[in-house]
Design a protein around this nucleic acid. Structure first.
Length: 584
DNA sequence: TAGAATCGCCAC
DNA sequence: AAACGTGGCGATTCTA
């Protein structure tokens, strides 16, 4: 379980050494690539070492002495040799920021490990141990890399790069045996591009945001005062000491609010929006409580504290994107979660381009329903998209036998709920709650929906069954989503897996498409433009004002190309807008 | 008392 | 009791 002996080390401290190394490296089929930095933030930390490994030896580039990586640029940006990295996004960000190098031809052992779906733990040490039976000492990882390096640091740095080659040799056959070659190529190509998105960040107008926050603070305070009066006044005991009551009742506490409501004669099983919403019209205090919670949420998540995410050096927000954040293959984001900014204009208009530039906002229209049409092959659903007509209206027309031009608002609304519900594996009771109908009515609607789209019924049934039986779902991009099959006796667990089995291939294929678009865009966009945000089926690019309309066209075309890689029987529509803020 | 668990809610 | 999928996160409450 010890590390193999280290191949010879070659220090690179000047341009001629680098050129010689580049010649040797370009002959390799694959090279291990790793970097050591003084910190995690590309804007505030420096690259200290660049380690490049071949089976013959490891080159150590002293980045404090070699400022120009020119001789390596072509090699790092070309598809060959393969660059093997662990968590390529991290190194790619530094290389792009410090040297303008757009890393390509990547094999990422971290992503490979995640795709292979082994147990948790995808750090290099865990992966090396799992695949090579080697124990790596990572104590040097967080050591001080800013000054002179100890022998131990150098050994550690070289070993991290050297280990990547045998690691790839071990993982590649496993990926191929598991039919994961296609999705691995997709993820590997997207990784440096996603690093580019983090590096670019997105500008937030702090003045505007703060004004919005202040407005909400006033709202919040007024609602809190009114609620305290109404809720505390109801308690005969507390009514004797209203001042005390005002200071003790915590409006953010579910049990406390529940008790206070009970004293008003309003006993509720839950205090969430779904439960209280229908009661709001009859009870003003509940309406006020919901308003209060809205303001409280706005303030805690999207108040003044949000400004701390603005990077002092760039003046922009640089969220973390988790490439394989969801089991379905979707990305997740954090610090902040840029994918859950309120969809209201007053928030979104605070996200702006630099002066003289524009935001180009593009999104796929109803992509998951188009994927549903593709995978089910349902002739009517495919035809609906081919016709280019209003899908929900068309669905309503088929469900209710109403001529297209006579479809009522209510009919269209119900058809829309059905269309969206199908993507989530919704059942009769879920639909009934959603649209406020009886269970029988919901059952009738579902029956009408499946009568309109018979191919959808059979596919969904099969997808649910397959997930339960095999413990696996697949996407059109070749992604395999594996999980422990449910206990057949556990009806709830079985139902849950059935719903997942219906949704995951659709959501996951959507992720495949968006990631493909990200990778293609990174290669096609001119250097003056960059992707600044991605929200599942939406891509935002910042571009010079003068070329924004051309970039919009390029964005649309590229997103369509990405979709066409996986959807061959259904047309895909992309809508793009050029704007001065993140508002379409 | 720190961290885990839970509730509630934001997005697509 | 549950009730349509995927996440992240703030505030409160629980737990060791």
């Amino acid at each position: 379980m010890t590390a193999p002996s280290l191949p010879p080390l070659t220090w690179i401290t000047d341009a001629s050494g680098l050129e010689e190394a580049a010649r040797a490296l370009s002959r390799a089929e694959a090279i291990g690539l790793d970097t050591e930095t003084t910190g995690l933030d590309p804007y505030r930390s420096r690259l200290r070492l660049i380690q490049l490994a071949t089976p013959e030896g490891v080159y150590l580039v002293d980045a404090t002495r070699v400022r120009d990586l020119g001789p390596l640029k072509a090699l790092l940006e070309a598809p060959r040799p393969i660059k093997v990295l662990h968590h390529a996004k991290f190194d790619a960000k530094f290389l792009r920021h410090r040297y303008g190098i757009r890393l390509a031809g990547v094999f990422d052992t971290m992503l490979a490990s995640q795709l292979l779906g082994s147990a948790d733990g995808h750090r290099l040490s865990a992966v090396a141990s799992r695949w090579l039976g080697i124990s790596l000492d990572k104590t040097m990882q967080r050591s001080d890399w800013s000054g002179a390096l100890s022998d131990e640091q150098v050994r550690y740095a070289a070993q991290d790069a050297a280990i990547l080659l045998p690691l790839r040799d071990a993982m590649r056959p496993a990926l191929l045996a598991d039919q994961l070659g296609r999705v691995a190529a997709l993820e590997f190509a997207a990784a440096p591009a996603i690093g580019g998105i983090e590096l670019a960040g997105i500008r937030l107008d702090g003045v505007k945001w703060l004004a919005l926050a202040r407005e909400r603070e006033r709202e919040h305070a007024a609602l809190a005062e009114a609620l305290h009066r109404e809720l505390a006044g109801a308690d005969p005991q507390l009514a004797l000491f209203p001042e005390l009551a005002v200071s003790t009742l915590n409006l953010n506490s579910v049990p406390q609010v529940m008790r206070a409501l009970a004293q008003l004669g309003l006993s509720v099983p839950d205090t969430d929006d779904l439960t209280l919403g229908p009661l709001a019209s009859a009870h003003p205090v509940i309406a006020k409580l919901l308003d209060y919670r809205h303001a409280a949420k706005a303030l805690s998540s999207y108040g003044e504290s949000f400004l701390s995410y603005i990077h002092p050096e760039t003046g922009r927000i640089h969220p973390d994107f988790h490439q394989l954040g969801a089991d379905t293959g979707r990305m997740a984001a954090s610090n902040p979660n840029i994918q859950q900014i309120p969809n209201q204009e007053r928030y979104r208009e605070c996200f702006v381009p630099d002066p003289g530039r524009k935001l180009v906002i593009a999104d796929y229209s109803q992509i998951e329903l188009r994927i549903l049409a593709e995978v089910t092959g349902d002739a009517k659903l495919r035809h609906a998209f081919e016709s280019g007509q209003d899908l929900h209206k068309l669905t309503a027309s088929m469900m209710f036998g109403t001529p297209l031009e006579q479809v009522s608002k209510g009919e269209r609304q119900r058809a829309k709920a059905l269309n969206f519900g199908m993507v989530y594996g919704m059942g009769p009771s879920g639909l009934a709650t959603r649209i406020g109908s009886s269970l029988d009515e919901a059952k009738d609607l579902i029956e009408r929906y499946f009568a309109a789209y018979p191919g959808v019924r059979s596919w969904l049934r099969q997808a649910g069954r397959k997930a339960v039986e095999t413990g696996e779902c697949t996407t059109l991009g070749g992604r395999r989503i594996r999980f422990t099959p449910p206990d057949p006796e556990n009806r709830r667990a079985v139902a849950g897996v059935e719903r997942f089995g219906k949704n995951a291939p659709l959501q996951g294929t959507s992720a495949d498409i968006t990631k493909r678009a990200i990778a293609l865009l990174d290669a096609r966009l001119p250097a003056s433009s960059c992707i600044v945000n991605v929200v599942h089926d939406e891509i935002v690019v910042e571009a010079p004002a003068g070329s924004a309309s051309e970039i919009a066209e390029l964005l649309c075309e590229t997103m369509r190309d990405a979709a066409a890689t996986y959807l061959t029987r259904v047309p895909v529509t992309v809508e793009a807008d050029v704007a001065d803020s993140w508002v379409k």
